[in-house]
Amino acid sequence: MADKLELLDLLLEDARESTDTIARQLGCDESEVESMIAELEGDGAILGYQPVVDWSRVETDHVAAEVELNLELDRETKYADVAGRITKFDEVTALRLVSGDYDFDVTVEGDSMRDVSMFVSEQIAPIPEVTQTVTHFVMNTYKNRGLEFIDSDDDDRLSISP
């Protein structure tokens, strides 16, 4: 029986890999791979599959910002309640509760810096529990999801060697 963690590891490397090739790599049957994937999806362990995009190579305007949020909660309101409201916005592509100087780490994406600032000031800042926002625009991405955005490590080996 192939291992779910190994399967996840392979999918994390290339989620578009065919189940046939995955099965060969794991040394199991294709049907086994398919049922493990179905199980992982059914359990909600795998939520989806998305490409890693280097937006600087796509002809479009794309801006991302990391936004720090501080919250003040009362007895009736929990982090999850506020998170539930923030995640509803399409502009928010990631939201995490973090330790340290602030509470929420929010990734906001949009077409322009103006769009993103407007969104933060008009939609996020007014939420009653939010006491402070600090917006950091992403200037450049060098690595994301384990993939390097800068060309490196070209294969310069001799084509045949002993």
Partner: peptide, 12 residues
Amino acid sequence: VISLGVGEPDFS
């Protein structure tokens, strides 16, 4: 050419 004739790792 795709070479499967290389006797050294493809990793750095």
